[in-house]
Structures are given as C-alpha cells and as structure tokens.
C-alpha cells in the first residue's frame, strides 16, 4: 500500500455500529412479567450501552458538545468527579478519541471499577472516602482551578448536557417503545440527569404522565450511585419541585430486589436498579393496567464483591 491515506472499508452505516459511540443508546425495554405478572412494568436495559451503563449517554453528549464548541481540543485532558459509571464512560470514549482522562473518586470505590478504569488507561485520584462523592467533586474543582488550561472539566453535576442527553435519547426511546402508552416514569436520583431529562421529555408529550423520583431513605445508605439530596451537594440542574411523587428506599430492600431480579427474571443488575424496582413495583401495583416504566442503570457484574451477595449465593 502506498503512503497515502488508508481507504476506509465501506460498512452498512446505521445498520451496525460503525463507531463505538454509535453503539450508545437504543437499549431494549424489558417487560418484568415474572416479578409483576400483571405485565404493566417495564425497565430500560441500560447496561446494553457499550460502557455498560446509562452514563454513556450523558458522557458522550458532554464530550461531543465540548468538541463542537471548542472547549475540548486535541491534547486537553478530560477531568471530572465520579463514583464509577460516568468515569468508565469518559475513560472508554476518551480512549477511543485520544484524550487523557483524569478522574477524582472516593477511595472506597470497588476494586472492579478501578480495574475497568485502568484498562481504559484513565488516571485516578482517590479522595477521602468519608466525604463520599462530595470529596471527589471538591478535589476536581481544585485541580481545575490550579491548571484550567490543561483540562476540560466535564462537571457532570452541573453540565446541562447531562440531562439533555436523556431528553434527546432515553425519553424518546421510552415513548416510542411503549407506543406512547407510558403513564408513570420512575427514576432513581444520582446526578438526576435521567430523572430530569426523561421526565421533561415525557411531560412535553403529555403533561399527565406521572414522574416519580427515588432517593435513599437516609443520608447513611448503601445505594451506590444514588444521592440523598437533603444531605449531599445538590446537582445544579436538579429541580426538587419537578417530581409528581417522591419515594424513599431502604438499602436492604434494594438489595433484596437485586437478588429477586437475578433469581426470578434472570437479570443480574446493579444496586440502583434494585432501588428502582422497589419503587416501580409499588407504582405498578397501585395502577394495574397502566404502563409503568423505570430505568435499570447498569448490570450487576461490578457489585458481585458486595457483601449482600455472599449471603444470597
């Protein structure tokens, strides 16, 4: 072959994933018929995204928008605070596009997540586990302030492209996949991006669709990926008045739901999916015959070292 540019092999664009980021979104909507025989409860299988979680959507929207508006030129480092899944999404996308990725995260993050991030070549800065994800946020802000020219600070907790990713993709998918029949949408809160984005999209289609938020029942909880808003740094785009209904889930109830999903539905999901199920199952029971949809943010592979599993294997 001559030294000229390599000719690209043609592919069926749009039919298969021609690029890594082309695999993001369009996840299946599963009917949870063995958990709710009524058949009115559905969950988005967000682990089908290439990075294994729903966070691929906001991470890609944040990065692609920053590339377009010049905030992320080649050579800059992507910086953010994360408890895991968003970091994996940044690391995956960053590797595929040639950006170094630096992530601040609590030192208590699970070993499986650290290994995944290392595999993608991301650099990790571990922060005081006693300060939870808020300690990581403070550290990321410090690093950015000290050397703003070096970084694109993605700031998932304040970046409007977080919730917009769900407004533009997850929301329309749910509306289409339920053939416009969705009546209740239930989302667990982390950054609140899924809740605000899908919620706003569905309300714009039909303002009578009920939007439900789910938080841990107390500031001291084990619902990895979820935030207790009253006691944590609140994401800028979270609107506490937006939900039609607010629900709280105890950690142990979410763990039991994770076990039930694996043993009854054959779905090995993450802890926030268990919390989503606890709330969504209740809504489905209260409204038989009405379509209830929730989001399962990731699968359970990263959580198998959690102690609740050793009691249930």
């Amino acid at each position: 072959m001559s030294g000229s540019a390599v000719r690209k092999i043609p592919t069926a664009m749009g039919e298969i994933g021609d690029t890594l980021t082309g695999l993001i979104g369009n996840t299946p909507l599963l009917r949870l018929e063995r958990i709710v025989p009524e058949g009115n409860l559905f969950a988005k299988a967000e682990w089908e995204n290439p990075g294994g979680s729903t966070k691929d959507r906001p991470a890609w929207k944040i990065i692609s928008a920053a590339e377009r508006d010049g905030q992320l030129p080649p050579g800059k480092t992507i910086l953010d605070a994360t408890s895991g899944n968003t970091g994996i999404a940044y690391a995956m996308i960053g590797a595929s596009r040639g950006y170094p990725v630096r992530l601040c995260m609590p030192a208590s993050v699970s070993p499986a997540r650290v290994k995944i991030l290392q595999a993608f070549g991301a650099e990790m800065i571990l922060t005081d586990p006693g300060l939870f994800s808020d300690g990581a946020i403070v550290k990321a802000r410090e690093l950015f302030s000290a050397d703003p020219g070096r970084y694109f600070y993605a700031d998932q907790y304040s970046n409007e492209n977080n919730w917009k990713a769900h407004f533009e993709t997850t929301g329309p998918e749910i509306y289409r996949q339920t053939r416009q029949s969705v009546r209740h949408f239930i989302a667990t809160l982390g950054t609140s991006g899924t809740f605000m984005g899908v919620g706003r999209y569905l309300k714009a289609q039909d303002s009578s669709i009920q939007i439900v938020e789910v938080q841990p029942d107390s500031a001291f909880h084990g619902l990895e990926g979820m935030k207790h808003m009253e006691s944590a740094m609140v994401p800028e785009f979270y609107d506490p008045e937006f939900a039609d209904r607010k629900m709280a889930v105890r950690t142990e109830a979410a763990y039991a739901a994770v076990v039930a999903l694996s043993k009854k539905e054959g779905l090995l999901v993450g802890i926030s999916s268990g919390a989503a199920l606890v709330a969504a199952r209740q809504i489905a029971a209260e409204h038989p015959g009405e379509c209830v949809v929730t989001v399962f943010p990731d699968n359970g592979l990263k959580y198998l070292s959690e102690r609740f599993w050793s009691d249930n294997l």
């Binding site: 408890s83 208590s108 006693g130 994800s133 998932q156 950054t191 001291f220 990895e224 207790h228």
Partner: peptide, 10 residues
Amino acid sequence: IQIVPSIAGG
C-alpha cells in the same frame, strides 16, 4: 477507625 458507607452519586 473509620465508618464508611458505599459511595453515592454518578
């Protein structure tokens, strides 16, 4: 001795 619950948020 530190008491640390699982981490939260994003």
